[in-house]
Write a protein that binds this DNA or RNA. Structure first.
Lengths: 151, 151
DNA sequence: TCTTGATCTAAAGTTAGCTTTAGATATTAA
DNA sequence: TTAATATCTAAAGCTAACTTTAGATCAAGA
């Protein structure tokens, strides 16, 4: 296979619609791979564009950069990711999306149940609960739901 | 109607499972109403527990405190919110949840489409796009999707 | 009344996720 | 070769959303 073309930081920035400083930041945080030119400038495999896009989308979903690091482990370090690599990552990510959707649906019905029942005491409300939060740490869960009613 | 009982900051903190400092912070940010005792301590209507729960849930959904301020405008300032008030807020919030679910579904199918088509160039990828972001500012949209394919 | 625990204020500190700055060096186009 | 433009580094700055600190005051029970 022909070696992947290397591109400048400005190119990555433009293509992903972000500031150069952001790309440099991600590079320094080891979120995206790069090498140096003889002069010391960073150059990136073109596939980094995809990687950056993924990072932005995941951030938008509420993941921290640290969590995204973990997700990106599904991609190879030392070679340009191929279709299969991306498919693997996408599958993992997809599961997270599904989970999120499920959580939102639960939130929705919890809200509906609460309004319906008019429980004003909150005595039994477990929609947001610090204990649950601790318990679910690491699962990637962001919406912490318990038994209805809610609020 | 009997006046609603006023409770201490510690009570609110315990019931919502948060630090006292957080409740004080929200109070100072005008996110929750309170009055002072003669001695100067804050006291809160019991309904503030609900309000705090709502704030936490909304934050979990990705809203900033500033955005939550706006959402909370649906609740009355000078009296304890009743069932109808909460129902109104819940309806607004529900719409946001629905939108979010729709966005996630779109993201899911975009991902599926991308993996399927194997577009490695990203030339046409619009999943995350700064321009779109600007354009949608204020709509509460957090997931910015364009035409597939994605990544 | 005394003491213990809760609360107060104001200011400073913290973390994540970036951007900005300043001054130097690289790269590219004419 | 010479500008003009792009990048570099390290350090400082910035915003949101909190927590911590220190020292003082309040409130409640024995």
């Amino acid at each position: 296979m022909p070696p992947e073309p290397l591109v400048s930081i400005g190119f990555i920035a433009k293509r992903t619609g972000n500031a150069v400083s952001l790309i440099r930041y991600y590079a320094n945080q080891q979120l995206i791979p790069f090498v140096r030119t003889e002069g010391g400038n960073r150059v990136f495999p073109r596939s980094v564009i995809r990687r950056v896009s993924f990072i932005l989308i995941a951030q938008n979903m509420g993941y921290s950069l640290e969590e995204i690091q973990l997700l990106l482990r599904a991609l190879p370090d030392n070679r340009t990711p191929n279709k299969k690599d991306w498919a693997r990552l996408s599958e993992i990510f997809n599961a997270h999306i599904e989970q999120r959707i499920a959580e939102l649906n639960q939130l929705k019905s919890s809200l509906a149940g609460c309004i319906g029942c008019g429980c004003l005491s909150l005595e039994k409300c477990r929609l947001y609960n610090k204990e649950d939060k601790m318990a679910s740490e690491g699962s990637g869960a962001r919406f912490l739901l318990g038994d209805s009613p809610v609020l």
